[in-house]
Amino acid sequence: MGQVTMAQALNTALRDSLRADPNVLVFGEDVGALGGVFRITEGLAAEFGEQRCFDSPLAEAGIVGTAVGMAMYGFRPVVEMQFDAFAYPAFEQITSHAAKLRNRTRGAVELPMVIRIPYGGGIGGVEHHSDSSEAYYTHTPGLTVVSPATPADAYSMLQEAITAADPVVFLEPKRRYWTKAEVELPAATEPMHRAVIRRAGTDVTLLAYGPMVATAMEAAEAARTEEGRDVEVVDLRSLSPLDEDTVCASVRKTGRAVIVHEAPVFGGYGAEVAATINRRCFHYLEAPVARVGGFDIPYPSPKLEEHHLPHTGRILDAIAELQWEEDR
């Protein structure tokens, strides 16, 4: 097969899903002739026609609000929010309707739909193009929230999300769209809600998802070569629900945990992971659970984002603070 980018993997997943199920619809801003600003929908309108893949008006509430109606009618809409911060106008439709309709109708109405959101920074985007908005969605019962970190997962998890019975917020790490991997498509990786160990280790667990998995892997390698620490990296993949068992098995083994995400730390998703670890692994911990994330500031201008986004140095710093025996 060969090298596949995450963008290609997502594109193939959409294509295969459109082929497999005539009820799957793809729509959003510029997803038709242009193929999306990130080309994730490239060629789909040409192959499946304007009825299956089409451009929408520039109205994000409209994209999600009409998707809700279409799903009620029996379709499986897969919609694209052009950028993370552009999805906020759709927030009400996502949280008040998509997330709740099953519960409000006591199961009479199912809403199988996927809201794809390219998220996170690292691409030098101007304002409103780099937010990590995952905590808004994970805080909403009724939503499933996932984020792939590799091309193989991007393919497998998107396909699974499209076949899911409930609305899925599918967070795509846009800075990794062009990351290549040796992948045979169609790829079937672990089930969507399972966290996976990306790198086994014994000293400390790095917990990451989406764009930060690659960063965590780099930091783990640096920790080995520079500090001689054996770091385990867990890719959470699914944020809601969280695969607590995989997380806790790793932390119980290593006794130390650092959560890494791009989003601001205060009220961030890492707090939920830390709380879970404290609840279930307290007696295994050698040190308080640490978090490395973006600062609690509005996303900075592009020239400053390298300081804002977690990188190897800051992760190594956090690891160094974990009350190692030699420091005691």
Partner: peptide, 27 residues
């Protein structure tokens, strides 16, 4: 049951249902 009655649930948030209706009609 909206499916059997052809009547969606009451929508308290003002105006949201117009989008759901537009999407349903598109369907």
């Amino acid at each position: 049951d909206p499916n059997t009655t052809g009547m969606g649930l009451y929508t308290i948030v003002i105006g949201n249902q117009c989008l759901n209706a537009a999407g349903y009609a598109m369907g």
